[in-house]
Structures are given as structure tokens and as C-alpha cells.
């Protein structure tokens, strides 16, 4: 009984993750500049990788036909999920900071940028 609940919950989480993945890829393709694409990348890493990894761990824990090795798959998926949860925001933050400080990314449809004005005022 518990295995059936785990399988259905895992399938629901994987379905949510796949939808987040598709939305994130469309957003990464359609957004106009780098700082807007960071939003889509957040949906793609946390919603598209962390959630289906938790779902895959539940799905593997519930599939009894794999025998005792199913705990191996569930543990590996859980470790990968925790790793993605820690590493993806850190990497995106380091990349955004480097892109802002080196002016590698151009802010194309710009309304106002207080951070840039502050830096110009401080140096000038």
C-alpha cells in the first residue's frame, strides 16, 4: 500500500518537473537579455531538476520489482537532488556577479539601472 502511494506521488512530482523544464527552456529561448534569462534558469534547475529527482527517488523506492537494489537508486537520486539544491544557486550567483562586474552582458531593453548609476557616481 505504501509503495503504491510512493509511486503515484513520484509520478506526480516527475510530471510537475517535466512541465517546469519545458517552460524554462521556452523562457530561456525567448527572454531578451541575460538577467531575465536567469529567472528561466532558476525554474529550470530547481523546478526542472530538484523536483523530478525527489520524484525519481520516491518512484524507485516504490517499484518493488527491482528488488533490494531499489534503495540504491533512491539513495543516489536523493544525494543528487541535495547536491543540485546546493550547487545550482551558487553557480548562477557567481556567474551573474561576474557578468555584472565585467560588463559582459548587455542590458538591452533597459528602463532604469540604479546599481550602474551608483557605481558611476562612486567612481566619478
Amino acid at each position: 500500500m505504501l509503495e503504491v502511494i510512493a509511486v503515484y506521488l513520484g509520478q506526480a512530482l516527475i510530471a510537475i518537473g517535466v512541465l517546469c523544464d519545458l517552460v524554462a527552456s521556452i523562457g530561456l529561448l525567448r527572454f531578451p537579455n541575460f538577467y531575465l534569462r536567469l529567472h528561466a534558469a532558476t525554474v529550470g534547475t530547481i523546478g526542472g531538476a530538484f523536483v523530478p529527482l525527489i520524484g525519481a527517488a520516491l518512484l524507485a523506492a516504490g517499484s518493488t520489482y527491482l528488488g533490494a537494489y531499489r534503495w540504491f537508486i533512491a539513495g543516489g537520486a536523493l544525494v543528487t537532488a541535495i547536491m543540485v539544491l546546493m550547487l545550482a544557486p551558487a553557480g548562477s550567483h557567481a556567474l551573474a556577479r561576474a557578468a555584472h562586474r565585467s560588463r559582459a552582458a548587455v542590458v538591452e531593453p533597459k528602463v532604469v539601472n540604479y546599481l550602474e548609476e551608483d557605481e558611476v557616481g562612486k567612481s566619478g
Partner: peptide, 11 residues
Amino acid sequence: TVPDTVLAIDA
């Protein structure tokens, strides 16, 4: 740009 490519590879 370069950060766009790295972000796409990452995701």
C-alpha cells in the same frame, strides 16, 4: 554572449 552560453549549459 559568454554568460548566456554557460547558463544554458548549466541548466
